[in-house]
Design a protein around this nucleic acid. Structure first.
Lengths: 115, 115
DNA sequence: AGAGATACCTTGACAGGCGAGGTATATATT
DNA sequence: AATATATACCTCGCCTGTCAAGGTATCTCT
């Protein structure tokens, strides 16, 4: 089953930060990594991806620099800042809280309701 | 920790359907039930709640009727339809898929990244 | 009379996601 | 030489769900 993007909303920035926690990366690469990790079930749309990078940079969570490719298309690399790492950990905790709450609320539908 | 509503987005209708799976209910009651179940960590805003009811009714997932209260404020009761029950089960599966995908993607940040 | 709880509703603004379009380079195919 | 595909970036404008702010009305308690 593919993933409804409505349900991902609010997590895109955290997902990007998680990728950058492993080391610097550029947009196209980050998106392909996500695609591979999810077995093709989920992919950020380019417009979503690049606007998220912009927001993260404006917020000081990441910094960017151009790669020195001598061949092929230019690449803008992103590096996570200390603030970004802190933000990642906080957002992840928030996600875990939300996840538990939603799980509980959705499980309510399995109760009673025979009639 | 309270729950960031951005992360709930896309789940409000499913949460409402889960409540109605247990039996008919009205808006105010459904919202208080959610508040209690989450120990006060989460509450739908009224505007969100009522627009969600509207969408669910337009989609044929619920039907509504006025209660016959002879005292106190009037209540609009909602009843889940067969389509709504089916929708609940589908949305719950979609949530579980999204949940697993997000968990996996966010866990990536815990890898490597010593430097 | 006033406060607070119950109970419903609408309007307008806001933010994130994304379809559709654009630019540019390199390689492989016809 | 022309075309297609992959890589790689970017922006504009629409859509949708959330929600602050405002409104209405009833009942109970002080």
């Amino acid at each position: 089953m593919s993933v409804a993007s409505e349900l991902i909303r609010g997590n895109t920035e955290t997902i990007i930060l998680a990728q950058l926690m492993k080391g610097d990366g550029y947009g196209y690469m980050v998106n392909k990594a996500i695609l591979n990790l999810t077995g093709g079930r989920f992919e950020l749309k380019e417009a979503t991806l690049y606007t998220a990078f912009r927001r993260l940079e404006d917020a000081g969570c990441i910094v960017s620099y151009w790669g020195d490719e001598t061949t092929g298309a230019r690449r803008r690399y992103y590096s996570i800042t200390d603030l970004g790492k802190e933000s990642y950990r906080l957002r992840k905790k928030e996600w875990e809280t939300a996840e538990a709450v939603i799980d509980k609320l959705l499980a309510e539908g399995e109760k009673g309701g025979s009639k």
